[in-house]
Structure formats: C-alpha cells, structure tokens
Amino acid sequence: MDAPSLMFEEEFEEIQRVCDKLYSDANGKVVFIVDKNGQPIAAAGELEDLDLTSLATLTAGNIAATGGMASLLEESEFSTQFHEGENTNIHIQIIGQRVILVVIFDQRSSLGLVRLRVRKTSVELTGIFDRLVSKAESPGVKSPLDEITDEDIENLFND
C-alpha cells in the first residue's frame, strides 16, 4: 500500500497525540513514525540531540531490505523487528503496510510492555492512516501546490 502523500492538520494532531500517549504508556525514550520512503511523520519523547532524519531514513532502508528478504522467501512482509543493544533497544513495527512505528526504549521499560502497547496503538494508527489516504485522494481536496506558480519555483533557484 502507498505511503500517504498529503498530511492534514487534523490527522497530524491525532497522530501526534497517539505518539505522545504511546511514549508515556510504553515508558519509552522516543517514539516516532516514518513512512516507507523515509519521511518522518511524527515524533515524541527525548528528541533533543537525536538525529531523527537519519534514524528515519535508516529505518525505512532497514524495512525495505527486510521486505526484499521477505519477498525472496515468499512472505508478504516481516512486520516486526527488534534490535537489542547494551543500553538501548529498538522496536520497529509496520502499520497497515503503509508506515513504520518505532519505539526506542531502555531499562525503564521492557520488550513485553512495548509489544503490548504497540499492538494496541497499531489498530488506532491503521484507522487514522486509512482515513488520511482516502481524504487525500478525494476529489474535493485542494492541494497546497495550487498556489505555487512556475515563477515561485524559478525564484527558489535564482540565488
């Protein structure tokens, strides 16, 4: 399934609220959502000094590589990944085949708790992203790019 191409304020707020809640419920360090192309969508937690852009890209690359392995093994996808470090662990979950939910956690939490909370959150996020994608595809939606002229684009490159 395609990643969303447009994000609206209403859904963005909802997604952000879900991230904030998961961060607190799972006792995580950081929670973030990235699309399968590596674009970060929302994040919560200890974000200072965190290179979210790089983490998001590497997460998407990781999911793409694992997806390639899955198709060689005739699996549709490997929807969950867990990486265990000495101090920090990463739980990665594909949501509704569209986006990736990442929870970074340390000894303040546990894999069991993170799994449990992620499972519950997945259902909620799937609903929001399904709604978001059909809203973006509905004919009445006005693209923000409508207001951008060819001249604006030229001007961006004129310095």
Binding site: L6, F8, E9, F12, E13, N37, P144
Partner: peptide, 9 residues
C-alpha cells in the same frame, strides 16, 4: 513519492 505536510508546512 513526495510527501506534503500541510500541518508543518
């Protein structure tokens, strides 16, 4: 595929 975030512009 491009991603346009209207919320964060």
């Amino acid at each position: 595929m491009s991603f346009i975030n209207i919320a964060s512009r």
